[in-house]
Amino acid sequence: MANWNDPQPGSGFGASPSLDGRTAGRAAYDMGLRRHMLSIYNYMASGVLLSGVVALLFATSGFAAQVLTTPLRWVIILAPLGFVLAMNFGVNRMKTSTLQMLYWGFCTVMGLSMSSLFLVFTGASIATTFFATAAAFAGLSLYGYTTKKDLSGFGTFLIMGLVGILVASLFNLFFASSALQLVISVLGVLIFAGLTAYDTQMLKNQYYQLRGTDFVGKAVVLGALSLYLDFINMFQFLLSFLGDRR
Rank of each mutant, 00 (worst) to 15 (best):
F174W: 10
L81S: 07
M94G: 04
V163D: 02
L238G: 10
F231P: 00
F241N: 06
S115T: 06
A2S: 08
L239I: 03
G111D: 08
N42Y: 01
A15R: 15
V75K: 05
T108H: 04
Q236Y: 08
M160G: 06
G243D: 09
G164Y: 11
Y41N: 04
A132R: 12
I159Q: 09
R22F: 01
S18D: 15
A219D: 05
D30T: 08
L190C: 07
I40Q: 04
G14P: 01
T156R: 15
F121E: 03
F130P: 01
G139A: 11
G21A: 15
D230S: 11
G194L: 05
R245V: 09
L50P: 00
S51D: 05
Y103N: 07
F174R: 12
D30G: 01
V109P: 00
A132V: 12
D150S: 07
V67S: 03
M37S: 06
N3I: 09
S178Q: 12
F235D: 03
R34N: 12
Y43T: 04
R245D: 01
N92C: 00
L68G: 00
L38T: 15
C107G: 07
A138N: 12
R211K: 14
V220N: 05
M87R: 07
G155D: 07
T98P: 00
F154V: 02
L187F: 12
G217H: 14
I126K: 04
T213G: 03
F63G: 00
L119C: 10
F83K: 13
L180Y: 09
A132F: 07
T98L: 02
Y43R: 08
Q181I: 01
F130Y: 15
F215W: 11
G21S: 13
F237A: 03
A64M: 02
L227Q: 14
T108V: 11
M110E: 12
G155L: 08
A134D: 11
G144Y: 09
A27I: 08
P17N: 11
V167K: 03
F89M: 09
Y145C: 01
D30A: 12
L222E: 07
N205H: 13
G223Q: 11
L182Q: 12
S51L: 02
F89E: 02
T129W: 03
N3H: 14
S178K: 12
T196E: 11
L119V: 09
V75P: 00
L203Y: 06
Q206A: 11
S178W: 01
A134P: 04
L227P: 03
G90C: 10
F157G: 00
G47E: 08
